[in-house]
């Protein structure tokens, strides 16, 4: 019970500080919007294979803006030695990981709402004709990206070129999620359910399980000094 309370406070303090200082969300949403704009504008002339391209672009936009945000949630902790204070808090590193994971999940979810909305409006692709399916893909993709991003984000708290390095290092680990999520998104757009869709979905589930577990286990090793 105590764990849950501590977890709640760790999540809450991040959300409250974000609400007051607005350090992460505006920059992330700005980048997401801009990237979505550019991508959709370029899509105008494309006739064939639109769904395939849109599937990929949506996730690329989410990935780039999302990685920026995940880096910032950790970089934020550097001010006034918040990070050291957080690690002195009597919880195991696994709980810190889960708290950061939750915050990043919520952040990325907001980004997804914006990016998906923009793509629906600007690219004329029926992304939301099967809202439930799209929601499932978005959720699983979010969990996959967040688990990787949060795990490696802890590494680069104080490094100045951290966000570049983070994008660099997460890419090989996040590439399977990006591919699976894009492919699943394409199938949603093309309105193809069936075994292929389920296969990509189950891949996303397995990936998420692996990396959330890895995060709970390895986070301690990554953040100790």
């Amino acid at each position: 019970m105590l764990m849950v309370t501590q977890f709640y406070w760790m999540v809450r303090k991040d959300l409250v500080s974000e609400y007051r200082a607005r350090q992460v969300w505006p920059a992330m949403l700005m980048l997401g919007t801009l990237v979505s704009f550019l991508f959709s504008a370029q899509l105008d002339g494309v006739v064939e294979g639109r769904s395939r391209i849109v599937g990929m672009l949506v996730w690329l936009a989410i990935y780039f803006a999302g990685i920026l945000a995940m880096h910032r949630t950790f970089a934020m902790e550097q001010e006034d030695d918040c990070w050291d204070a957080l690690r002195l808090y009597p919880v195991t590193a696994s709980w810190i990981y889960l708290a950061k994971f939750t915050v990043n999940f919520l952040t990325l979810a907001t980004l997804q709402v914006v990016v998906l909305g923009l793509f629906v409006v600007f690219s004329n692709v029926p992304l939301l004709d099967h809202p439930l399916r799209m929601l499932t893909v978005a959720l699983l993709g979010n969990v996959g990206l967040t688990s990787v991003g949060t795990l490696l984000g802890g590494v680069w708290t104080e490094n100045r070129q951290g966000s570049t390095m983070l994008a660099f290092l997460t890419l090989p680990l996040a590439a399977p999620v990006l591919l699976a999520a894009s492919e699943a998104t394409r199938l949603v757009i093309d309105q193809e359910g069936g075994p292929l869709w389920w296969r990509w979905l189950s891949f996303l589930v397995v990936f998420s399980i692996v990396f959330v577990t890895a995060g709970i286990v390895l986070f301690e090793l990554l953040i100790e000094d």
Binding site: L152, V155, M165, A214, L218, L221, L222, E224, D225
Partner: peptide
């Protein structure tokens, strides 16, 4: 890219383990 040797070793090892 990480100067401090034990930190570098710890982080790289974690990534290698994941890989």
């Amino acid at each position: 890219s990480i100067q401090e040797s034990h930190r570098s070793a710890r982080i790289t090892s974690s990534l290698a383990l994941l890989g």
